[in-house]
């Protein structure tokens, strides 16, 4: 799972949860995979994502070093910044670990890079 995906995830489907974002990451295995750098694409993604959540997630996996807490101004033309963001958003992959609901503490396991976001039978409300 890439951090860009993580930035869109929410546990708001869990009973009683309102926002469910961002999910805390507890990673036991992280890999980096080479992805072609496309500054235009990464700029568009940055515009859409929630930067504070990315900053927190980067901190969760100890990759926040060198990452500004807020979006740099005129980042579209700042290649160094875009490269950091590119690496963090698209190259870093959480292979093993857990995603934790910020409101309930419910853990969603990540196995072989795949988050399992299913609820157990007893967690599903009958009045959906």
């Amino acid at each position: 799972m890439k951090l860009l995906t993580h930035n869109m995830l929410s546990s708001n489907f869990v009973k009683g949860v309102t926002k469910g974002f961002p999910l805390k990451i507890m990673a036991s295995k992280i890999e980096e995979k080479e992805v072609d750098f496309n500054p235009e694409f990464i700029s568009r993604m940055i515009a859409k994502l929630d930067w504070p959540a990315l900053y927190t997630a980067a901190g969760d996996i100890k990759k926040a070093e060198g990452l500004p807490e807020t979006i740099t101004e005129n980042y579209e033309s700042n290649e160094d910044f875009l490269k950091i963001a590119h690496n963090l958003l698209l190259q870093v992959e959480i292979i093993e670990g857990d995603l934790i609901c910020p409101e309930t503490g419910r853990k969603f396991p990540i196995t072989n890079g795949i988050p399992n976001m299913l609820l157990h039978e007893d967690e599903v409300t009958g009045d959906k």
Binding site: T5, N12, G113, N116, L118, V124
Partner: peptide, 28 residues
């Protein structure tokens, strides 16, 4: 899980979830 695993092997971003409980933020 079996199908998501195939996606993963093809290097796509994929997760296991239910259509009635999509684990994505609103308006994303």
């Amino acid at each position: 899980f079996g199908l998501v695993k195939i996606c993963q092997q093809r290097c796509f971003e994929a997760l296991v979830s239910d259509v009635l409980s999509i684990p994505l933020r609103c308006n994303i």
